[in-house]
Design a protein around this nucleic acid. Structure first.
Length: 785
DNA sequence: TTAGGATTCG
């Protein structure tokens, strides 16, 4: 039977392939060579509908990807199937299935392909004596294919488009192109009849192109949300203007926009109902993302209201909760992002009847929402915005000002007229990842708590200790509630700071004080690695160090004798770039079976930082290793010995005594292997370094001041120190917590109280004895986090 | 046609 189905059990085919057949690598396929006893194996990444040729012969085309050489430049080939075989295959073949073909004819293509596909195609038919084997169950290679390419490309049969690199553009032509957004103005109302959007692109030729796009329909302009997004333009007209090439919309202009983040799903944003998008295009996007990652300067973390500073311009992602017409040339938008601006903010006076929005919500959010006044050309767009929609407002200006009846200055938010620097308003869809994150955050905000904050935040009274007015009583009552709570020893009574600094160490105290300042102000600098055995502290290594070690270890080729043991299954391949890097992945088994990727621990040899990062997204744990003569071993301990989720786990160089890798098999044999980092570290002889926050708090009360150290794994902030470096949500949470504990721009009297336990201890060196203080058994109050 | 990147009146 020419088309045969193969059943896979435990990664093995139930019926073996004919023994005379040998596997052929894609790169060895050449027209005119003898491939009689060879077979080609791959995963079907694309299949086209069954069609009939002019002579009535059935015709079926698929694209096969060589899953053993995923990282190579050429790793896929077209297979053209004719006659009865075409009909049979069309019935059973689905993308993702493993496909083997023997008895094929290799035909060289007339032109060189630039899309990563083989320069030849395979022709297959019953008449030619071909045989096809289709695997019914995902085998190991297939499993691996899914792991690295979980994005299924769109399927479509369409004419091929030719895309022009930006350094090959000619005046007066209409072209198709790809580019990475370097600058953009979100669509705005032009002085003519259309919306206008200006977009500057760059591509790997390093040439820039500024495009001016017009359309009467807002939806027909590219949906660009940030610098770094990738666009595909079809039918854009190229003209020379002021000595430079310029793009401008022509009839039939169409665009797709993609998130430019490496690893993000490749989903086009477009208003067109019909568009072409195939696996080559997906590959282009992925390649552009990788180029952009090292060639385009990415902006820092998105600004939040809690992080605004006076006198600057910033982009804000927020939700619209109210709007009002102010006068002919300005319009008010009330927005929030769940965080609190640390400065007093202005309120634009408008008549209640002019304010559109949910009254109850507006009242609840009165301390969190801010007023943004938009001017001139932005008014028309602002008027059309729907309450509740998610916006990104670009280049908002924060202006410091004070009114006659205020002692202290407040912050005003303006969106000035004009479109300089991309100033404008964009509406984000709910599917946008930033909106999803924002929504989740907004839902977590306790509105009752934010209302309690109003007295402490919107007033700025000159309250010195002991000088009490009615208003101040109010304020102090509000501040009686400490922003920290004690987790033990509640029976202890408070001690004044002066008493503590006048006493000998060691002792323990309960204190009530205010946080005047803290270090480091850049919170990410507070994260260190701590060894509980030798008590040493070290900086968290940069990714570059890891990359360097990986490069070094890639020089050691995987030792084939160490592959496929009783407790792991191995896959290897060689990259087809100049380096010919050999990569091996060892999937640790449980009960002689491969686990689901999300439960699987794997070891990798020869991988790059990017490949390892990609694997951690899909698999439970990744351990980078290298081969020795008789076992796998861990890399240098300057590199993480284990990667799990976003966290890199390191071992202490002084205290670790690495043990054989095969000790991992004892965990694999457990009933439900959990692969806890502590357990993995233990069997591998690694002394696990713990992520810890180290901060210096300057605490004051009516009697004096002292510096106390905070040494916290998780308890104080209720944020695991291990996760903060890779989680912007947690960074945000920590910044908000610190803004609550020590609100910027506030006088001492208006700072909140902190209740803490501190212990004093002596540190002696050759010349003197110094007393230090450390905070313990204290946590940030629940309503603060 | 409009805009053709390159911050701020309010």
């Amino acid at each position: 039977m020419p088309v045969q189905l193969m059943k896979i059990i435990k990664g093995q085919s139930e019926t073996p392939l004919p023994s005379h057949l040998q596997k052929e690598n894609l790169q060895h396929l050449k027209e005119g060579c003898d491939h009689t006893n060879k077979y080609v194996q791959g995963v079907v990444t694309l299949s086209y509908p069954l069609t009939k040729l002019r002579d009535g012969t059935d015709f079926f085309k698929i694209v096969l990807q060589d899953s053993d050489n995923l990282f190579s430049q050429i790793n896929s080939i077209n297979v053209l199937i004719y006659g009865k075989m075409a009909e049979d295959c069309a019935k059973i073949i689905r993308r993702g299935e493993t496909f083997i073909v023997a008895g094929f004819k290799v035909i060289k293509l007339p032109t060189v392909r630039e899309d990563g596909r083989h320069g030849c195609h395979l022709e297959v038919s019953e008449e030619a004596g071909s045989a096809i084997y289709v695997f019914l169950y995902e085998c190991l290679n297939n499993f691996f294919f899914y792991s690295l390419n979980c994005i299924i490309p769109f399927q479509s049969v369409a004419p091929k488009y030719v895309y022009t690199p930006l350094n090959h553009l000619k005046d007066g032509t209409i072209v198709n192109l790809y580019g990475i957004v370097k600058f953009f103005k979100p669509p705005y109302v032009s002085k003519g009849t259309d919306y206008c959007s200006v977009v500057t692109l760059v591509d790997p030729s390093n040439v820039k192109l500024t495009c001016t796009l017009f359309n009467g329909n807002l939806d027909s302009l590219p949906k660009i949300y940030k610098v770094g997004d990738i666009v595909r333009f079809h039918r854009i007209k190229i003209r020379e203007y002021n000595g430079q090439m310029q793009g401008i919309t022509s009839a039939g202009f169409a665009s797709l926009t993609f998130d430019g983040t490496v690893g993000a799903p490749v989903v086009p944003r477009t208003s067109s109902k019909v568009y072409t998008f195939m696996d080559e295009e997906q590959k282009t996007i992925e390649e552009l993302r990788i180029w952009a990652a090292s060639n385009i300067s990415i902006s820092g973390p998105a600004a939040r209201l809690s992080g605004v500073q006076p006198m600057l311009f910033f982009d804000l992602t927020c939700q619209l909760v109210g709007k009002a017409k102010v006068d002919g040339s300005s319009f008010l938008l009330k927005v929030w992002d769940g965080t609190k601006c640390p400065y007093p903010t202005w309120k634009v006076p408008v008549e209640a009847k002019d304010l559109e929005g949910e009254k109850v919500l507006l009242h609840q959010l009165r301390n969190l929402a801010v007023d943004i006044l938009v001017y001139d050309n932005h008014v028309q767009l602002a008027e059309s915005l729907k309450i509740g929609s998610f916006l990104r407002i670009y280049s908002i200006h924060t202006k410091q000002a004070s009114a006659d009846n205020e002692d202290v200055s407040h912050i005003e938010f303006h969106l000035h007229g004009g479109t300089c620097y991309g100033r404008g308003i964009g509406v984000l869809p709910e599917s946008n990842p930033d909106v999803k994150e924002l929504k989740a955050f907004l839902e977590s905000v306790d509105l009752a708590d934010s209302q309690n904050m109003e007295n402490t935040c919107s007033m700025d009274l000159d309250s010195t200790f002991g000088n009490v007015t009615d208003l101040e009583l109010d304020l102090q009552r509000c501040q009686q509630l400490s922003v920290t709570v004690l987790t033990d020893h509640q029976d202890l009574s408070n001690t004044e700071l002066k008493t503590i600094t006048n006493s000998t160490a060691p002792q323990q105290y309960r204190i009530r004080a205010k946080l005047r300042t803290y270090k480091p102000q850049k919170l990410h600098q507070s994260v260190k690695l701590h060894c509980s055995k030798c008590n040493s502290l070290q900086e968290v290594p940069y990714g570059d160090d890891f990359d360097f070690i990986l490069h070094g270890s890639a020089n050691t080729a995987p030792n084939p004798e160490l592959h496929n043991t009783s407790w792991y299954e191995s896959v290897t391949w060689t990259t087809q770039d100049q380096k010919q890097r050999e990569i091996a992945i060892h999937f640790v088994k449980h009960d002689e079976m491969l686990q689901h990727p999300e439960d699987t621990l794997l070891m990798i040899e020869g991988g790059t930082l990017k490949e390892i990062w990609k694997l951690t997204k899909r698999f439970k744990c990744v351990i980078p290793v290298r081969s020795t003569e008789d076992d796998l071993e861990l890399l240098d301990l300057s590199a993480p010995f284990l990667l799990q989720g976003n966290v890199k786990y390191y071992g202490c160089k002084q205290c670790s005594t690495p043990k054989p890798i095969k000790n991992l098999s004892s965990i694999a044999a457990e009933q439900r292997p959990s692969w806890e980092p502590t357990e993995v570290a233990q069997v591998l002889g690694i002394e696990l370094l713990q992520y810890v926050f180290i901060m210096k708090f300057t605490l004051v009360d009516e009697t004096g001041a002292l510096n106390a150290y905070l040494f916290d794994y998780e308890k104080f902030f209720q944020i695991p120190a291990s996760e903060i470096l890779t989680n912007s949500f947690l960074q945000q949470k920590m910044q908000m917590t610190m803004n609550t504990l020590c609100p910027p721009g506030r006088k001492l009297g208006d700072l909140p109280w902190l209740e803490c336990f501190i212990r004093s201890y002596n540190v002696r060196d050759a010349t003197k004895n110094q007393v230090y203080y450390q905070i313990f058994d204290t946590t940030v109050a629940e309503d603060v986090v």
